[in-house]
Amino acid sequence: MPGHDRGSISAFVVVLMLAALICLGLVVDGGQKIRADLQDLPPTIDLMTAARALGIGRSKAYQLARDGEFPVRIIRIGDLYRVCTADLMKVLGVEVSESAS
């Protein structure tokens, strides 16, 4: 099934869990491991992974992306929509430091 590979599901789980922990106030400076996991995410993720993290359904996500109104920067490659992971983290209130490698 397109858009349902293991990588996008695991990226979604990491993003969703971290957002939930931050909202609950359970991640503070001791969250280095979680931040390190987030830094391991690819620079872009698929539209549906970002949409699920934001609580947006499939149809609405594609409509917003098509109309240029998705709440996170979209990179369009032909018919493929990719979402900038760093921008998604900012929208979710997750601070991920840039690595100097």
Rank of each mutant, 00 (worst) to 15 (best):
M1Y: 14
P2N: 10
P2S: 12
P2I: 00
G3Y: 14
G3F: 03
H4L: 15
D5H: 08
D5W: 04
D5C: 00
D5V: 02
R6D: 06
G7I: 05
G7V: 07
S8D: 05
S8T: 14
I9H: 10
I9S: 00
I9P: 04
S10K: 09
A11C: 09
A11S: 11
F12I: 03
V14I: 12
V14Q: 12
V14P: 01
M17T: 12
L18V: 13
A19C: 15
A19H: 08
A19G: 10
L21H: 02
L21R: 08
L21Q: 10
I22Q: 02
C23I: 09
L24M: 09
G25D: 12
V27G: 03
V27Y: 06
V27K: 12
V28W: 14
G30I: 04
G30P: 09
Q32C: 07
Q32P: 06
K33F: 14
I34T: 04
I34P: 02
R35G: 05
R35Q: 15
R35L: 13
A36N: 08
A36L: 13
A36K: 08
D37N: 13
L38P: 03
D40Y: 13
D40I: 06
P42Y: 05
P43L: 02
I45S: 13
D46N: 13
L47K: 07
M48P: 10
T49I: 07
A50L: 12
A50S: 15
A50H: 07
A50V: 04
A51Y: 03
A51L: 04
A51D: 07
R52D: 14
A53V: 12
A53R: 02
L54Q: 05
I56G: 00
I56E: 01
I56D: 00
G57Q: 15
A61C: 01
Y62E: 04
Y62G: 03
L64H: 05
L64A: 00
L64W: 00
L64C: 03
A65G: 06
A65Q: 02
R66T: 07
R66P: 11
E69C: 07
E69L: 13
E69G: 05
F70N: 05
F70A: 04
P71Q: 05
R73Q: 14
I74H: 00
I75C: 09
R76T: 05
I77H: 14
I77G: 15
G78I: 05
D79I: 11
L80M: 07
Y81D: 04
Y81E: 10
R82M: 03
V83S: 01
V83I: 10
V83P: 01
C84T: 03
C84K: 09
T85G: 11
T85C: 04
D87H: 06
L88H: 07
L88Q: 02
L88P: 00
K90V: 14
K90F: 08
K90R: 15
V91Y: 00
V91N: 01
L92T: 13
V94H: 09
V94C: 10
V94R: 14
V94D: 03
V94E: 03
E95P: 02
E95A: 11
E95V: 13
A100L: 15
